[in-house]
């Protein structure tokens, strides 16, 4: 089948499936972090008490719960509002900024919460794709770096699980934690690798297996934009590596592929 019907009825192609998982498991959960680190988003979230499910046919499922300023996500469970996407591609198009409306299966009457969610979503987009003017504000730049780093690290979890090109690497990936820190005062994020799965977290982990320190926020922005060669940066001292570099080397095979999906 072709056209919209085909898009909805055919199984998703692998790229669409991986990207849909990234959008729901790496990008959308950053709303939780946004509420934690951005005062304006915290204020919006304090007025919300709702759970919203994102259900994709043949693809991922995620529930975002925002309750009086505190947020969380889960990959199962019921929700007050259910937004259905008939295909991975349609979900991806929405996340990529196209005008695509999901099908509200349940809870459309919670339009006030949905409107607030929409403003959170816009705020997240602005943080992930900031203007030069936004980045001139150091506090904004810091939030941009933290959120982008977490998106990238969480996307590695999706790559590890679904991308066939890295399965040989994943097979050899040993357990450990990698701490990412921007000098001198953060932000900080880390990944935990265990049994071939990768989980991303904000903050610091005690006794990481490896540490990757970026020299400052400005450099971190350049790295996120793909403007620097990490190997060169390491030699120049802009990235300081220590600890289990074998784990870092293997993990970078996943990180290198994130940009092939998320632009």
């Amino acid at each position: 089948m072709t056209g919209l019907l085909g898009e909805c009825m055919n199984p998703p192609d692998l790229r669409d499936l991986i990207l849909a998982h990234m959008h729901l498991h790496a990008v959308l959960p950053r709303i939780v972090d946004l509420i934690r680190i951005d005062d304006e988003s915290t204020r919006v979230a304090q007025e919300m008490d709702v759970s919203i499910a994102f259900a994709v046919r043949g693809g991922p499922y995620l529930v975002l719960k925002v309750s009086r300023g505190v947020a969380g996500v889960s990959t199962s469970g019921l929700a007050d509002v259910v937004l259905f996407f008939p295909s991975c591609r349609r979900l991806n198009r929405m996340f990529q900024g196209e005008k695509v409306n999901p099908i509200p299966l349940w809870g459309l009457h919670r339009f006030r919460d949905l409107k607030r969610f929409s403003s959170l979503s816009d705020r997240l987009t602005r943080h992930l794709k900031p203007s030069e003017q936004d980045l001139s504000d150091e506090a904004f730049r810091r939030r941009h770096v933290e959120l982008s780093l977490l998106v990238g690290l969480a996307a590695c979890g999706v790559i590890a699980k679904l991308d066939p090109r890295v399965q040989r690497v994943v097979k050899g990936l040993h357990a450990g934690t990698i701490q990412y820190s921007v000098l001198p005062n953060g932000p900080h994020a880390y990944v935990e690798v265990q049994h071939g799965t990768v989980s991303a977290f904000a903050g610091r982990v005690p006794a990481p297996s490896a540490t990757i320190e970026l020299k400052d926020l400005k450099f971190a922005v350049q790295l996120i934009r793909g403007e620097v060669d990490p190997f060169a940066a390491s030699g120049l001292g802009d990235i300081r590596l220590s600890g289990d570099l074998h784990l870092v080397d293997l993990f970078n095979n996943l990180f290198d592929r994130v940009g092939l999906y998320l632009k």
């Binding site: 060669d229 190997f231 060169a232 390491s234 030699g235 590596l241 570099l245």
Partner: peptide
């Protein structure tokens, strides 16, 4: 030169 010094002699290792 990509990475300055590519391969096993890269400073990164």
């Amino acid at each position: 030169i990509p990475s300055g010094i590519p391969g096993h002699t890269s400073p990164a290792f």
